[in-house]
Amino acid sequence: MTNPILSVRNLSKSYFSNKQFLGKKTEKKAMDQISFDLYPGETYALVGESGSGKTTTGRSILKLATPDTGEIFFEGVNLLELSDKAWRPYRKKLQMVYQDPTASLNPLKRVGKILEEPLIIHRMGTKQERLGKILDSLNAVGLSPDHLNRFPHELSGGQRQRLGIARALIMEPKIIVCDEPVSALDVSIQAQILNLLLDLQKKRGLSLFFITHDLSVARHLSDRIGVIYQGTLVEEAPTDELFSNPIHPYTRNLLASIPGKKPDFSGTGTPQEGHFVSKKYW
């Protein structure tokens, strides 16, 4: 088997809140010893409910959240040990697409400027070369050069999310962390964005770390799925295996809760190769 492009080991992070009136702090574990690997060209879906720690995990990969302990290896380097300066060149290779395209795009900047900004920050190319790259990435996500001078509010929800993806692509990343990129969209638009992601991955060999609460979306897109519950990765398996042979009670409950027509989730109960089940929360 090929080597993973990203290896996450034992990530933990706790948040504390001053809930009680007199001092006593309560601890909430957002991530509790989370470990997983992401392989080149693979889509790994992290599935969980709100507050389960899936977004914290995604943000940790990009150093947008700082884990208390743990290691994240990318191309053999532990990202968490890098200084800010040493981190910069890696920053380009790891990009993110956010849930709410309206909130994650600067409303005062035009499309062209939004896409040029990361190139300027990383001092890439001349003005001409940058424009070329901008047009390429617009084209890759199905937007036209006419959109260059528009503001985000002049775009539809689906177009805004395409722009968010174009902004991630322009740095030619190895990995894109997608945090619920379709949950704010209507189903017909959702289908377009999912198709775009599948297409881009095929063409560019991207690795996707896909965070979602929607199991049918996760099933459609991913090669492997990790299920996270209260900060713990309770089960991880290849997608078909997870849906036909869920073992952890939380996973089983989650699958049973999906509305609509359901396949048989019963399975053999014995994990196949590459199928991990946690002993916690039984």
Binding site: Q190, S216, H220, L221, K261, P263
Partner: peptide, 10 residues
């Protein structure tokens, strides 16, 4: 347009 739980994936 809804990804199904039974149909083809990817």
């Amino acid at each position: 347009s809804i990804p199904s739980l039974t149909g083809a994936r990817k």
